[in-house]
Amino acid sequence: MKILITFLAFILLQSCSSGPLGGDIQKNLAETDKIYGKCNNPNRQFTYITKKICEDQVRAAGPDGVVGDPINLTEIFSGFGGNGKVVYAGSSSNEFLWNGALETLKEFPLKTVDSQGGFISTEWVFKETNPNQRCLIKVNITSRELMSNGVNTKIICQRKESDEWYSSNELFVEEEKNLTLKILEKASQLSSVDSLS
């Protein structure tokens, strides 16, 4: 009984923060993952299912640990027999707002461009100085008319912890407002040019 009590007391003490023995167990696990592979790390406990998922996730991510963008067959084959440009037709969105949004986001790689629904989403964007954070921008054109409330913008960011991405739960109200104003400004300019021509 004394041994059991001593053992439990030791566990409780060690479980508090970094414990009396010091060190960071998650950091140590991350280091040994590099040696044995995350799924074969003898310091981790896995169930059958979590081990299989781990193996598939590791293979899917590759050595850099990042699940990259999928191979886009449409992009690959669009270069054959055409000029390589994708034409989006039949849009129900206001063309000036739509083109204003595309113009505003031209600096970013786009993941989704749905002219039918008026929806644009960028790829995850990384900052070179902070690879543990990534953000994307979503823009939805909701109006056929050129009107100020016809644009919805949303900025979403995630942060990386222990090789997993988690929502940062941050709000970017001011940045989203500025982005919306930028799109409206571009749309207004395009509309002016169009009316003059």
Partner: peptide
Amino acid sequence: SGGQTLTFATGGATITVGDVT
């Protein structure tokens, strides 16, 4: 399957109770 372990993790230690290997 599953539901056979509970894991308690802190900065210093991890304790798993249940079906362990």
